[in-house]
Amino acid sequence: MKTNYHPRHARHRFPAGVISCAIWLYFRFPLSLRMVEEMLAARGIEVSHETVRRWALKFGPAYARHLKRKPPSRRDIWHLDEVAVAIVGKKHWLWRAVHQDGYVLDEIVQSRRDTTAAKRLLKRLLRKQGCPPKRMITDKLGSYAAARRQIMPDVEHRSHKGLNNRAENSHLPFRRRERARQGFRSARGLQRFVNVFSAVRNLFVPPRSRRSAAATHLHCLNAMAEWNVAASVAA
């Protein structure tokens, strides 16, 4: 694998290809830092798990910012849900919004589970997406309805636990990563992690409409090519 020079990789002993591979393994699969260290060692690359952790903190956000985002559409349906996360013994809430194909639109870590927190999520979504959705779907938590009335009153809102499986299922990959990491030490660290984790997952997991073997293979090839561009790596 060749590597293009990029200032972000200057003064690092390992080339961009090794760094991007380590970060890809860590965020793409439910692996601990020590597992990534072991997988790299099997390829003859001697890197400590602490080095992988530093790479993930330094380069992960930069790579994620360079990944293409799905263009927003007024036909999108937003599925919103929140999941409890214990951070050093204190309960926090990870609020997540996904669209109809499971693409993660945004996530935000908050210490509250009320209307104020729901409003903050909706405001962030509108700012990032640039337009409201066709419909939003949530569970029965009343905070969503109250926030929707204040932030985007003209948007249709369906509140039913059975309709919101898309958002609830989106928590499962995060839960697997949470177990592999053995939890998080701070709300800021959790937010930083999910920002990169979801960007990588959005890139590599094919849409629900493209799940044939051939389509999945092509999607993975295109995703890896885009990842290499974002990481300044040339095949």
Rank of each mutant, 00 (worst) to 15 (best):
A22R: 05
I23G: 11
A56R: 03
T51H: 01
P72L: 02
E38K: 09
F14V: 01
C21S: 14
G60L: 03
F59M: 05
H49V: 04
V36I: 09
H12I: 04
I45C: 09
E37V: 02
S48I: 04
R54N: 13
R65A: 15
R13N: 03
A62K: 09
K58D: 10
L31I: 00
F27W: 11
L33E: 14
I45P: 02
A22P: 07
I45R: 02
H66N: 13
A41Y: 13
H66T: 05
A16I: 10
E46Q: 14
H12N: 15
V18Y: 09
C21N: 13
V36L: 08
R53D: 14
G17W: 10
I23W: 12
W55Q: 04
R54L: 12
P61G: 03
R13V: 04
Y26I: 01
Y26N: 06
T51F: 09
I23F: 08
T51V: 14
R28T: 04
I19Y: 15
A56W: 08
P15W: 08
L25G: 05
K58M: 08
A64W: 02
H49G: 07
E38I: 03
L40A: 04
A42V: 02
E50H: 12
F29G: 01
M35Y: 09
A42T: 02
L57D: 14
L40W: 09
R69H: 06
W24V: 06
A41H: 12
G60I: 06
S20K: 06
L40K: 00
S32N: 07
V47N: 07
G60K: 01
R28C: 03
L33F: 15
M39F: 13
A64T: 04
P15Q: 09
H66Y: 11
P61I: 02
R11K: 11
P30G: 02
R43S: 03
G44F: 12
Y63A: 00
C21I: 09
T51D: 10
L67Y: 05
K70M: 04
F59I: 00
R74A: 13
E38Q: 14
K58C: 06
G44I: 06
R54C: 11
R69T: 12
L67N: 03
R43C: 12
L40N: 01
P30H: 07
H66L: 13
M39I: 10
R54H: 13
G60Y: 03
E50D: 15
R28Q: 06
R43G: 12
R28I: 07
F27Q: 09
L67K: 04
L31W: 02
R69P: 00
V52M: 04
I23A: 10
T51M: 09
F29R: 08
K68W: 11
P15L: 01
F27R: 02
R11D: 14
I23T: 11
S20T: 14
V36C: 11
L57H: 15
R43Y: 09
S32R: 05
L67W: 06
L67M: 11
E46W: 13
L25E: 11
A22L: 11
A56E: 10
E37T: 02
R11H: 13
L67C: 01
R74C: 10
R74S: 10
